[in-house]
Nucleic acid binder design. Structure first.
Lengths: 223, 223
DNA sequence: GATTATAAGCGTAAACTTAACGTTTATTTT
DNA sequence: AAAATAAACGTTAAGTTTACGCTTATAATC
């Protein structure tokens, strides 16, 4: 029996303001030319999570990014090429031009969630699961900060959450909620790229979050 | 590479008022005589979920009970007997004398969460994960009703949630919250086994819950 | 140099929810 | 008839959420 991993990689396009996922055009049969999630077989002496990291690095050049297991897919007939149990991972990355180039050089590219091609095997199902998990997790985990650059503005953060939740949050309430966590560090820099007034630049206080988390703190960003 | 499933089976002891899990004393080497979760290898032509159902039926005689996948364990060296990726399931059952007997006849028995023996391999880790998942899920999914008989009283239900959350919920607030969902069906029966006055018997409206759920309803039983 | 346009940032009040605790009811036992 | 007790019901203050109005800082334009 073979074991593989597949990874659903989310990136946020700050220019287009939408969420994208990384897809890969298969080079070998079966299903050569069709689109699939990135993935590969797990080596005999390789930890599952290491396989996921290896595949992610191959397609994005990234290490040390958000990468977690979602679930295993194990229907006996899911892959006509043989019996393969696949463990699905999901990853959140900061999308930029470099990653686009690395992806492209491996036959992979980024697709907006509303322009996805048909996917091979049960990968469409995996995407649906991952998207619902993203929305769910956005409410209780600081995943927004994995998708944005280290430094970001509040309007940017709000737009990201708009994209995740698929609706426009009230900006005054969003601001209050996110600031009331005391988990953002305000810098004295202003980003004037989107307005005359300029928006203050913030960073997420990862250390504080992790400390609080160990003490049983639960983030709540639901709206 | 081998693929196995392990199942963390929770039962609620209505007499002792505590949560228990089903453990199995291994009969074969390696680790003969040591305690483990119930589990087994997945057959070449068997769906993962079917393997989980098969193992659960073997040890409890039960079919058609709550059984969901949690996560896969895939460290290369997790099992000294060979390379085995194990997919963990969790299950919730209505514990009664029949199940105790079936379990016992297979070398399995029920243990309170505070009296667990050391477990084989990474099964201790699995239990910790499953317990936290149970607590988490109790807030947003109607799992309490999987653990109680079809017919139950509100004081019984409150005691179960006390056991899951590990604290005593205010009974007046619990009552209001659970009744405000309109998901309980009050019968005209009274259970007088615990008081002179007797407590009304309720049933959970599964059909209504599932219908609401499809429309995007989210249960909230957090306290 | 004054005016305008605009995104960013701040404030408030009504509606709703939660948390904490007091009271009444139905029944059996004495 | 009175006492004991688990079950059931009720109230109020504090906190949270939602919906919306107002002010501010700056660049572009008149």
């Amino acid at each position: 029996m073979w074991v593989s991993i597949d990874s659903l990689v989310f990136g946020y396009d700050t220019v287009e303001n939408n969420l994208k996922i990384l897809l890969f055009q298969r080079k070998v049969e079966p299903f050569a030319g069709e689109w699939s999630l990135i993935g590969g077989l797990v080596n005999e002496n390789e930890n599952l999570s290491d396989a996921a990291e290896r595949v992610l690095e191959k397609f994005t050049g990234l290490t040390n990014v958000f990468l977690e297991q979602l679930t295993a897919y194990g229907k006996a007939d899911r892959d006509p090429g043989g019996r393969v149990v696949s463990v699905l991972y999901w990853s959140l990355v900061k999308l930029d031009d470099l990653h686009r180039d690395i992806a492209n050089s491996h036959g992979a590219s980024w697709f907006g969630l509303d322009e996805l091609p048909d996917l091979v095997l049960d990968h469409g199902e995996m995407v649906r699961l991952g998207v619902s998990k993203l929305v769910e997790n956005a409410k209780t985990h600081p995943i927004g900060f994995e998708l944005l650059p280290e430094e970001f503005t509040l309007p940017q953060l709000k737009q990201l959450y708009d994209a995740i939740y698929g609706k426009s949050i009230d900006d005054r309430n969003f601001r209050k909620k996110i600031l009331s966590t005391n988990l953002l560090i305000k810098t004295d820099k202003k980003d004037k790229s989107t307005s005359k007034k300029g928006a203050f630049v913030y960073r997420f206080n990862t250390e504080k979050y992790e400390e609080l988390n160990e003490q049983g703190y639960h983030l709540d960003l639901s709206v």
